[in-house]
Design a protein around this nucleic acid. Structure first.
Length: 406
DNA sequence: CGACCTTTGAAGCGC
DNA sequence: GCGCTTCAAAGGTCG
């Protein structure tokens, strides 16, 4: 599978954040080597344009499909590519004016042992887009809309602070009161807030439920806004974070968005069993891609079943160019970085098996044995040519061939 | 009501 | 280091 970093999951500490850290001697060489040329930038932008065109024009996609086979040795090509991408992004992808609208947090590498950062690295911490919408912005949970103003429960001066740093030798600790080894308060700019994922999408083509929910639910980030509303939804550390799932296990976007956070009946239940919020895994590149493209696929083929949609998206994902995929790998990497910054002690293992709090945890608990068994059975089936799932049959019947081809 | 389906990628774990 | 397993999102479907 494509990996952004061939370093094996260590891309959390990827060197993209090193770009301005000249004091990282080891990195310096890479920085020079990875210099992001204007041509690279132009190529990248071009690829982004292509994608949007493709998304709007199945024909164009079909043409492109003819040019690049789906069976193009994806992992290898991607590995190669990602090295290049890594270089590109390290070389200034996010410093470039072309991405000035990128609402990303420009974080210093949080995984450096000492996080020694040159003073200049303090400059850019939060880049908010001032105008226009970057194509990627649509899927970014880091929204301009939510970067400011600050939520009422946070000091107003917090919202004025731009810039987040992990390494506490800087004055950031003064800003955010980062406890040593723990998670400090993060400015609202840091909050994984959402924005309409499909701001430009016309409501037409959506089923009513989708058009009705898009602005407030599915089109928004997975981040539970309820967490922003007060102690009940607050991360113990005081950091509202999208990855935190309220004990319900359900993300209550719409409740928040509609100002209807409280659901009395449910809340009553919850109060009886106060549970810790579950910090969810950061989304990987494909998940981010799915989040962005799901609505489009739904609109195109009027499918509703996520399983079928995911199949389409999986194929489309493979049909993406390296550059197009690189966007999402980069986004995912940023997400992981931010996640790690917010929850340094969190581990994916926390959400494994039993011991989880919240409904999600309960669900996992309940599913644990079954899932394991299911997996094994599934593998056995595939080995023995076992029966096919109902969905497997369904997809071939229900999913338009043209969509599956992509 | 809850499990299932489906996808890819990240991460954890055992060997 | 490799392979396996789980989880992440989504929502319709099914028992």
């Amino acid at each position: 599978m494509p990996q952004l970093s061939s370093g094996g999951g260590d891309d959390l500490g990827a060197n993209d954040e090193m770009i301005s850290f000249k004091d990282e001697g080891e990195q310096e060489e890479k920085i020079q080597e990875n210099a992001f040329t204007e041509r690279d930038l132009a190529d990248l932008k071009s690829s982004l344009v292509n994608e949007s065109e493709i998304n709007q024009s199945p024909n164009a996609a079909a043409v492109r499909r003819g040019q690049q086979s789906e069976e193009r040795g994806f992992p290898d090509k991607h590995r190669d590519h990602l090295e290049g991408v890594s270089k590109q992004q390290d070389g200034g992808l996010y410093k470039s004016p072309a991405y000035s609208g990128y609402p990303f947090l420009m974080l210093p590498d949080p995984y450096l042992p000492n996080s020694s950062v040159s003073p200049s690295s303090n400059k850019v911490s939060v880049v908010q887009q001032s105008h226009g919408m970057h194509p990627l912005t649509s899927l970014l949970p880091y929204s301009n809309d939510h970067f400011s103003p600050s939520p009422p429960h946070l000091p107003t001066d917090m919202s004025q602070k731009t810039g987040v740093h992990r390494h506490q030798s800087q004055d950031l600790s003064g800003y955010y009161s980062l406890p040593p080894g723990g998670v400090g308060q993060i400015t609202p700019s840091m909050s994984w807030q959402s924005q309409p994922v499909y701001p430009g999408l016309s409501p037409c083509g959506f089923r009513q439920s989708y058009s009705a929910n898009l602005p407030s639910a599915s089109s928004y980030s997975r981040f539970p806004h309820s967490l922003m509303l007060g102690p009940s939804g607050m991360h113990p550390t005081g950091i509202p974070h999208p990855a935190i799932v309220p004990p319900t296990g359900k993300q209550e976007h719409d409740q928040y968005d509609r100002g209807m956070y409280v659901k009395p009946q449910v809340e009553t239940k919850r109060e009886k069993e106060p549970k810790k919020p579950v910090i969810k895994k950061p989304l990987n590149a494909f998940m981010l891609y799915m989040k962005e493209m799901r609505a489009k696929v739904i609109a195109e083929c009027t499918l509703k079943e996520s399983a079928a949609i995911n199949q389409i998206l999986g194929r489309r994902w493979h049909a993406l160019t390296r550059e197009e995929q690189a966007k999402y790998y980069e986004l995912a990497r940023k997400e992981r970085q931010l996640h790690m910054q917010l929850y340094p002690t969190w581990s994916a293992r926390d959400n494994y098996e039993a011991g989880l709090s919240g409904v999600a945890g309960e669900k996992n608990k309940a599913d644990w044995g079954k899932r394991k068994r299911r997996k094994r059975e599934k593998q056995q089936d595939s080995n023995t040519g076992g029966k096919r799932s109902a969905f497997a049959t369904f997809k071939e019947e229900a999913v338009p061939a043209q969509l599956l081809q992509i």
